[in-house]
Design a protein around this nucleic acid. Structure first.
Lengths: 138, 138
DNA sequence: ATGATATGAATGAAGG
DNA sequence: CCTTCATTCATATCAT
């Protein structure tokens, strides 16, 4: 490898097709139904609720629920959280270094409100446990 | 993404020259005095110099230099290098058709088990010691 | 206008 | 957790 070490920056916006298998970013094919919407919705909702590193049990439950929308594996859920958290953090960390003009930079204020209402995931009230070390960028 | 975000894409992506301007393909119309000229030149030069994965510091510096030609962000530089390297590899992959045998085919072992850090997460059944080591990211 | 090509952008998956 | 690779989408320009 090159190993020039480091160099990273990614933006994490709307979720992609987590169950897309090889589908990286772009999106789903026009023929796909709309399970992604439910999937992304659930995951995003969970994330916003403060869940950052789901435990084994959580992942299992989530994947089980998501499987109803389509093919989904535990690892997909695991990866999703890992990536989402990482990208959000990286985005906040590096931002940009444009020393000329910074017009209309899209800054997304983190809404870390513990609001989990539409989530179909029926936990036994556990989401908080796995995220006790949650911290914000401030 | 799904189509439900197509509108969002137009604004967020606005694909084009590296600086999110307008020119997208065609390899930067040769013969027109655009800032891209310098931009592409610098990036290509750096790439040819051996720089494939610039570190954060490098990206910062490069973007700063390039900002003189026009609006550009670290994100753009990062993407440029990522894409350039990926494309080079991708093209090289196709060219490997000489001989009628092309190895390096994308192998995707459907293993329900992945190794993460020091823990082995078994997605096939139950995760073994998922994130027992909750380390602060701050 | 349509097709092909090129490039930026985004994310899933995997390695370390 | 951090870094990198691979794949795909969306769009712009060029070629027909």
């Amino acid at each position: 490898m090159d190993d020039w070490v480091s160099g990273f920056y990614v933006k994490a916006a709307a979720a992609g097709g987590i169950r897309g298998g090889g589908n990286g970013g772009g999106g789903t094919k026009c023929g796909e139904v709309e399970p992604d919407r439910g999937t992304s919705e659930v995951l995003t909702d969970l994330f916003r609720s403060g869940l950052r590193t789901p435990s084994t049990d959580q992942i299992q439950r989530i994947s089980t629920q998501l499987s109803l929308y389509g093919k989904i594996e535990s690892k997909n859920v695991f990866y999703w959280f890992q990536n989402h958290k990482a990208r959000e953090r990286q985005k906040r960390r590096k931002v940009s270094a444009d020393g000329g003009d910074r017009r209309g930079k899209i800054i997304r204020p983190d809404e870390d409100k513990i609001v989990l209402a539409n989530s179909i995931i029926d936990f036994g009230g556990v989401i908080d446990k796995a995220d006790y070390h949650n911290q914000e960028e401030g």
